[in-house]
């Protein structure tokens, strides 16, 4: 039974409600309006907003006569996207970028695991990891690219190196936190079952650290993605071996603005797709096990 509302200001001495049933309080007008929009499902609300923005974008381009050398409208960008994906111009760079990212993430993950194992196992390792992370993590890995090119030459090794570097430190931090915050009681249970060494790590510590691990991989991916695109922009390999960053730069040299936008949209879409993938993974594991705050049961 909702609490009775206060008598509205205005007409003085509002009559007392009749004994028995109270009248239902009326919603104020603003709440009614809000309830209308708010009642639509999330996807619909976002979709409508997105469509409205795209329409505004197209409207501006068509009406204001913006120079196509500077700015492209959604119709042209969509056309460029379709052409790029169907005809393959966008496919090869995308695959190149994803391949380099994947390689860098793999190396970074392995190193993160190794460093974390050392950090969790020994005091010296812990100090070393903390120091290195504090110094290197704040540095955008792209800034290391010129050095990497000197060390490894003008080839993909330099690119993979900076990606691995971008991924390594946030992952090591997350993994370390994950391992360190395994509840002592859970570990004690493992030990009381007679688990030791690797079995204890595999069956107890690793699964317990999963929320932090996934968060670490997710953060690592985010840094890695941004780094590879930026590195490709700086690196400038021509021809078939270039990635999405080079594709955008190349399109810019040739004043192909719709393709610049198409490249950007592709980058964003991949980012969104992978984010959704991570969310799905989390939902199937960490959320299902109630290992996150506010999880649905």
């Amino acid at each position: 039974m909702p609490p009775p509302t206060d008598a509205p200001a205005g007409p003085p001495a509002a009559p007392a409600p009749p004994a028995g049933r109270r009248p239902a309080p009326a919603l104020p007008r603003s709440a009614r309006r809000r309830a209308g929009w708010g009642r639509l499902p999330t996807a619909v609300r976002r979709g409508v907003l997105l469509a409205a923005l795209i329409a505004a974008w197209q409207g501006y381009v068509s009406a204001a006569g913006v120079s196509p050398l500077v700015f492209a409208g959604p119709a042209d960008v969509a056309a460029a996207l379709v052409a790029g994906w169907a005809g393959g111009d966008l496919v090869a760079p995308t695959l190149t970028t994803l391949r380099l990212l994947g390689l860098g993430m793999l190396i970074g993950s392995v190193l993160a695991l190794a460093l974390t194992a050392l950090a969790v196992g020994t005091r010296l390792g812990d100090d070393l990891l903390s120091l290195l992370t504090a110094m290197i993590n704040p540095l955008p890995s792209v800034a290391v690219l010129p050095l990497a090119m000197l060390w490894f030459g003008l080839n993909e090794t330099a690119l993979v190196f900076v990606v691995a570097n971008a991924v390594l430190w946030p992952m090591a931090v997350s993994l370390g936190t994950g391992f360190r915050t395994v509840p002592a009681t859970t570990v004690a249970v493992g030990r009381s079952l007679g688990l030791r060494g690797w079995r204890l790590v595999r069956d107890i510590r690793l699964p317990a650290a999963l929320p932090h691990t996934i968060a670490g991989v997710r953060t690592g991916w985010a840094f890695g993605w941004r780094t590879i695109i930026a590195a490709e922009l700086v690196f400038g390999v021509a021809g078939a071996r270039g990635g999405l960053g080079f594709y955008i730069n190349d399109a810019r040299y040739y004043l192909d603005i719709p393709n610049v936008f198409a490249g950007l949209v592709t980058i964003a879409l991949i980012g969104i797709a992978l984010d959704l993938l991570f969310t799905a993974v989390e939902r199937r594991t960490v959320v299902r096990w109630g290992m996150r705050e506010g999880a649905a049961t």
Partner: peptide, 20 residues
């Protein structure tokens, strides 16, 4: 470092929206 699932999806869409 943990967040809920719902806002994460919205963040993702928001990201795409933000770009456009």
């Amino acid at each position: 470092m943990t967040t809920t699932t719902g806002p994460r999806r919205r963040d993702v869409l928001r990201g795409g929206l933000g770009l456009l």
